[in-house]
Write a protein that binds this DNA or RNA. Structure first.
Length: 274
DNA sequence: CCAATTGTTATTTA
DNA sequence: ATAAATAACAATTG
C-alpha cells in the first residue's frame, strides 16, 4: 500500500513513542522481512534503548535509538505501523513490536514484502544515506529529470516514474496521479516527451508530493485520523479503481490497463498517445 | 480454482 | 554490455 505520504503518516504514528524507553522487543525472527538484518542483535540492542526521533525518506523510515542504534523499516506492499495499548494482544502478522511503558509500537505486514533493517554506529548507515534526494529537495531539478528520461528513453514514462533512483517515494497511484495532472499518456516513451512536457512532469511530481504529504500525513504535528480522509476529492485517486469510473476533469470514462508491469489508470480524453 | 493487490529484486530477453 | 520486460516473492480477498 504505502507510498511517500502514507509512509510519513505511519512514521508519525510511531512518534507517539519518541522519548520513551523500549522495555521489550517481540519479533518473528524467522520471517523474510528480517533477512536483511540480524534480529537477535536488533532485539539485544533495542531492549532498554530509548526511541529518540525518526525521519522518512522515499518509502523508508529511520528510527534513531540511544546506544547508537538505527532501525529502518520499509513497508513493502501491505505493511503498516500502529500504536496499541500495553494490553493489546499481538495479532498474526505483527512481526515486530516495541513495548514501551504506555504503548506498543507495532509493525504489521501480511504479505511480507517489507523489510526491517538494523545498524549501530555514530552516523546513519549506508542503506539510509544512499536513498536518492527527495522530490521536494533542491536537487530534484528539471535538468536531472530530463537527463534521467533521456537515459530511459525507450521505457514507458509510467515505468520510469516508478524508478526510486530518480523518483523516490513515487508508487503506482502517485505515478498515475502525476501523469493525469500533466496530461501525459502513461505509454508514451520517456524519450519522446517535449521539453515543455518534461517541465510539466517535474512540476506535477512536486505538487503531488506536496499535497499528498499535507493531506495524507498532515501538516505540522497534526496527524489525520485515517490515511485517505483528506485527499482532495478532485484527484484521480478516488476513481482509479471504480468500474466505470470517470475522469474528474473531463467527465469521460477512464481506462485501466497494465503498463510498465503495473495496473495503470488514465483518462484517454486528457492523456493522448499521439 | 482464477485473478487481483499503493513494491522491489533477480533473472531473462532484446 | 545495457536496458527493458518478466517472474518471483507471500498472504489474503473477491
Amino acid at each position: 500500500m504505502p507510498e511517500l505520504a502514507e509512509v510519513e503518516f505511519f512514521r508519525k504514528r510511531w512518534s507517539a513513542g519518541h522519548g520513551a524507553k523500549v522495555l521489550a522487543v517481540r519479533l518473528h525472527a524467522e520471517k523474510k522481512i528480517f533477512h536483511r538484518c540480524d534480529p537477535a542483535l536488533l532485539k539485544k540492542k533495542l531492549t532498554g534503548a530509548r526511541l529518540l526521533d525518526s525521519v522518512t525518506a522515499a518509502k523508508q523510515m529511520l528510527f534513531r535509538f540511544s546506544g547508537q542504534s538505527w532501525l529502518g523499516i520499509h513497508l513493502g506492499m501491505s505493511g503498516e505501523l500502529r500504536v496499541e495499548t500495553r494490553e493489546y494482544p499481538p495479532a498474526k502478522h505483527d512481526h515486530l513490536i516495541l513495548v514501551q511503558q504506555d504503548r506498543q509500537l507495532v509493525f504489521n505486514d501480511p504479505r511480507m514484502f517489507g523489510a526491517v533493517l538494523f545498524a549501530t554506529g555514530p552516523k546513519p548507515p549506508a542503506w539510509w544515506t544512499r536513498i536518492a534526494p527527495a522530490i521536494l529537495s533542491k536537487e530534484f531539478t528539471v535538468e536531472a529529470v530530463a537527463a534521467f528520461l533521456h537515459r530511459r528513453a525507450r521505457a514507458p514514462i509510467k515505468a520510469v516514474l516508478l524508478m526510486q533512483e530518480r523518483f523516490p517515494g513515487i508508487g503506482n497511484w502517485m505515478a498515475d496521479e502525476v501523469l493525469w495532472r500533466a496530461a501525459i499518456h502513461p505509454k508514451r516513451l520517456a524519450g519522446s516527451l517535449s521539453p515543455a512536457e518534461v517541465r510539466t512532469l517535474h512540476r506535477e511530481c512536486r505538487k503531488v508530493c506536496r499535497i499528498a504529504l499535507d493531506t495524507i500525513a498532515g501538516k505540522g504535528s497534526y496527524l489525520p485520523p485515517n490515511l485517505n480522509h483528506h485527499i482532495p476529492k478532485s484527484w484521480l485517486f478516488w476513481h482509479r479503481w471504480e468500474d466505470g469510473g470517470r475522469c474528474p476533469r473531463t467527465g469521460k470514462p477512464l481506462q485501466r490497463e497494465e503498463v510498465g508491469g503495473r495496473t495503470t489508470c488514465w483518462s484517454p480524453a486528457r492523456q493522448k498517445l499521439r
